[in-house]
Design a binder for these strands. Sequence first.
DNA 1: TCAAAAGTGTTCTCACTACACCCATGC
DNA 2: GCATGGGTGTAGTGAGAACACTTTTGA
Lengths: 239, 239
Amino acid sequence: MHGYDKHAYEPFAVTVDLAVFTLRAGALHVLLVERGQEPYAGRWALPGGFLLPDESAETAARRELAEETGLADVTGLHLEQLRTYSEPGRDPRMRVVSVAFAALLPHLPEPHGGGDAAEARWVPYDTAGNLAFDHDRILADARTRVGDKLEYTCLATAFCPAEFTLGELQRVYETVWGTVLDRPNFRRKVLASPGFVEPVPGAARLTGGRGKPAALYRAGPATTLHPPLLRTPREGRPA
Amino acid sequence: MHGYDKHAYEPFAVTVDLAVFTLRAGALHVLLVERGQEPYAGRWALPGGFLLPDESAETAARRELAEETGLADVTGLHLEQLRTYSEPGRDPRMRVVSVAFAALLPHLPEPHGGGDAAEARWVPYDTAGNLAFDHDRILADARTRVGDKLEYTCLATAFCPAEFTLGELQRVYETVWGTVLDRPNFRRKVLASPGFVEPVPGAARLTGGRGKPAALYRAGPATTLHPPLLRTPREGRPA
DNA sequence: TCAAAAGTGTTCTCACTACACCCATGC
DNA sequence: GCATGGGTGTAGTGAGAACACTTTTGA
């Protein structure tokens, strides 16, 4: 960043794109919007939009998240910057640089499409494809990042409501990784990680309608996991 | 990204900033340039510059890297996008969104200041502070990322020349992490990681001028480490 | 012959896997 | 009772830390 020759740079449009994940019915889902206008009219796309003049990318992402999900309060939700996509030609009309974010939400009540004209929908990750722009790639990058981050951060609790059982937390890992974990060992690993979860004293809740009520936990203050919860090739047993 | 109302967005300048690391004399160094003009004239800053009209951020970063280091061939050098800094006011004159990159270089011959007016210098990381703009924060973020990535990727070889000894590779870890590792165990871990390094048949070289010549290795095809080379709190012994 | 650096062997410990088993609840 | 999910106990194994030891070079 040397000179500021007014002709040495060109103005760009800057947008944010959001890969918003949640777990529904035991499967990873992503929030998509259907485009109403060209280009890519009728195609699905990641929610997003332009930065306002006094906004950072993080602020814009949080605003878009609130608009698309209809949630009144999106403070405290996990929002993570992924990377920035800047290839010329990724938007056919103009030069658009897009900062991509991943957001992790607990299961929401279905009617979420809030502010905008285009209706937003939860789509199972496996059936989300052929998106507008380069959003297929952004979504794939986001998915990879989320899976990786479960290993060495406390991110998994972002998929859970404020109070959750260890069984629910385990199902987050099993769903995102597509593996089966051993319940006793999972429990011990999680409880042995300082600051990962902390018990809600005296609270318990039934999960499947049957069985012993499970103790409730909430997310602890830690953000990284030492040692990591490794996604080993052969952990756990079938069923 | 719904409508394209021409008034709904504002043009931004987009730049890249580079945190270029290398190891010199057993210490982590970073490449800095001295600013010649306002704002922050006379202050040190990360090298960087504006995106050209037909460049992606990655292309621009590689071009800046070549200009600042004076290296003829920067293809193949490890360049990694860190994150994007977009807070309003991070540049006092205009709205500038900057995509930050980290680059890892082997030890270079000293005269590197190549194309540009501002002279570039290798500065020990520990003495690099009070930089222009928000570059203190970018540099700190980059440093953290590099340290973390040594654990679970094969990034360490990027600090080494094309052919290197295991002792040199170990010194990369020890320098970046500030720890002392046990040589026999380090050797076994590295050689047990498939694709991390591969031997150069028959080649050997002296490292410290004395001692047994060490076998040479080059970087293997792997990019991630399974299992990771964990930076445990108490590994190795003093000296 | 000594110092220095590479390379090998070996023991011991601890963490983790793979289970068996018990507890509490709804039907 | 029995199915379902939560929670505890434990044996065996395997990876890694710690450290002794050998090898090969320069001075």
